[in-house]
Amino acid sequence: DKAMLVREAFASPYGKALTAELGKSLRASADPACLTDKALTADQLEPRGRDIVITWGTRMLDGAFALIDRQTSDNPFASAAELESLKSSADVKRYLAMEAPMRQAKILDLIFEHFDRYNLISRVRLGAVSPLATGNEALLRLNPADATEEKLEEFAGKSRSKALKRFLQLSEQAGAAQAAS
């Protein structure tokens, strides 16, 4: 369920930081006369902007994954069933739980990069949010992806779980097959 993935990503600490940045951009960019006309206050902009990005971001993920799903159904990954069944292993579950902040950060970066790029190309007068676009180091440091990846490598390196080893092996193959298709 992409809507839930996106909502969870926005509820994460990095999601909240990006939302605050979006709020800053909206407050700096909104036309004051228009705000008066619409009886909108500056503090209404952030939650409403967040809802807009969540709605459009969910639509974007639905569209992108529909494309990927169509391609993988044409070229199914041979060990898909085994990969799926390994997800019930306790070690794999723990690994996937540890991985969640990284998955969420990737979703958030993807959404805001596309949002910023569209706004730039379409001349929407809204400052960019994505820390990569703006060079916002403080915000970039809040991205948990690198730290999570290190923790995962350490966890996988120390683990003696055969299920986890096989899961990682198949995940890599599935990823390569998906990229190829």
Binding site: D31, L45, W56, R59, H114, Y118, N119, S122, R125, L126
Partner: peptide, 18 residues
């Protein structure tokens, strides 16, 4: 182009385009 049309929603928040 996943965000094509978002400017209409942003205009509701007084964000101008063009």
């Amino acid at each position: 182009t996943f965000f094509k049309g978002v400017e209409t929603d942003l205009a509701e928040l007084c964000i101008r385009s063009g």
